[in-house]
């Protein structure tokens, strides 16, 4: 059965020669909560833009609800809701007016809009602030309003690009709760985010992209099992040792003395080591490093998380701070001049 989103060998090369997406293939089933993860510059936003008909692909095929993104773009726009990375609300209008405007942009008419807007204000808990100008809203309220605008026309599929970035924990939790409820009502959700814990909890399936290619795909538990090992994160006190890189030295020690190690990846503070029964290895590890005069500042053992999955496939840890200041500026909406 074909998915509600079908992407095959999708390629996007920008005018300046940048290969943002290098032939990715994936599919999302109807009603799925699908996470699309990757470090900055991996090609996530480019893919979302192609799927939401904002950008033309270079080659390959992409369809949404069986409609081709090239020839059926107007039909696709009627059944999708799109939330960009930036919060887009008109600050000169009230929350209610913003929703009505969006309803009109979605070519809804008359009483249908009014009813739908009332419902949405309830869904995102903005009933009390509905008739205040959006310029007076907090960041979290704007984000909720923005989310509501994407829902006006009862879309079948919701595309969300970093919907909770830059929000305080409560607002974030609120947004995730709405998304969970929407998904339970049958809306397919396609989301990019940097919050892996929520992905782990809510996404039925996910794909990890890096440098324009899909490097891993599956359910969260499949991907975690694939690691098949605990992760031991090591932090070093100094970045160099006797003129050499401490990471290189540490790798040599690990490779020579420890058979159970399945993978070693560089991390920000040192190394992350994957090994079966990691906690049993710790005493030996400390002793071995001590002998090699490598001084540890931190050591921690955990069962695999999506963080580890992400690190294994991209060599990077996902970090919320990665969001550029340009995005942050956009967080706080739009003011008309």
């Amino acid at each position: 059965m074909p998915g509600i989103i079908d992407v095959s060998q999708l390629v996007k090369i920008y005018g300046d020669g940048t290969k943002a997406v290098k032939g990715i293939t994936f599919s999302v089933n109807e009603g799925e909560f699908f996470g699309f993860l990757g470090p900055n510059g991996a090609g996530k936003s480019t893919t979302i833009k192609i799927l939401t008909t904002l950008l033309q692909k270079t080659s390959g095929s992409a369809s949404v609800a069986g409609l081709s993104v090239d020839s059926d773009a107007p039909k696709i726009r009627k059944i999708i809701g799109v939330q960009n990375q930036d919060t887009v609300v008109d600050e000169d209008l009230t929350g209610r007016e913003n929703l009505i405007l969006q309803g009109q942009l979605q070519q809804m008419h008359g009483p249908a809009i009014k009813e739908r807007v009332d419902d949405l204000l309830k869904i995102v808990d903005l009933v009390d602030a509905a008739d205040k100008r959006a310029g007076f809203y907090s960041g979290g309220m704007k984000k909720r309003l923005d989310l509501a605008t994407t829902l006006v026309h009862n879309p079948k599929i919701l595309f969300l690009d970093e919907p909770t970035t830059g929000l305080d924990p409560q607002s974030r939790a609120a947004i995730w709760a709405y998304l969970k409820r929407l998904n339970e009502q049958g809306i397919t959700i396609f989301i990019t985010t940097q919050y892996l814990e929520e992905v782990d909890r809510l996404c039925r399936r996910l794909a990890i992209v890096d440098l324009g290619e899909i490097v891993a795909q599956g359910t969260p538990s499949e991907l975690k099992q694939e690691i098949g090992a605990d992760s031991i994160s090591l932090g070093f006190e100094n970045s160099s040792l006797n003129g050499g890189d401490v990471r290189t030295k540490a790798r040599q020690v690990l490779e020579k003395k420890f058979d159970g190690v399945s993978n070693i990846v560089d991390s920000d503070v040192g190394l992350t080591v994957y090994a079966k029964n990691g906690s049993y290895m710790v005493p030996e590890l400390v002793r071995a490093f001590d002998e090699a005069q490598i001084r540890l500042s931190t050591i921690g053992v955990s069962s695999p998380t999506l963080d580890d999955v992400f690190l294994k496939h991209t060599g990077k840890r996902i970090r919320v701070e990665e969001v550029s200041s340009a995005n942050m500026r956009g967080m706080f909406g739009r003011r008309r001049r």
Partner: peptide, 12 residues
């Protein structure tokens, strides 16, 4: 601000 993109994603 992304407002143009938001409009472009609608059937307008």
């Amino acid at each position: 601000s992304g407002f143009l993109s938001k409009m472009l994603a609608t059937p307008v």
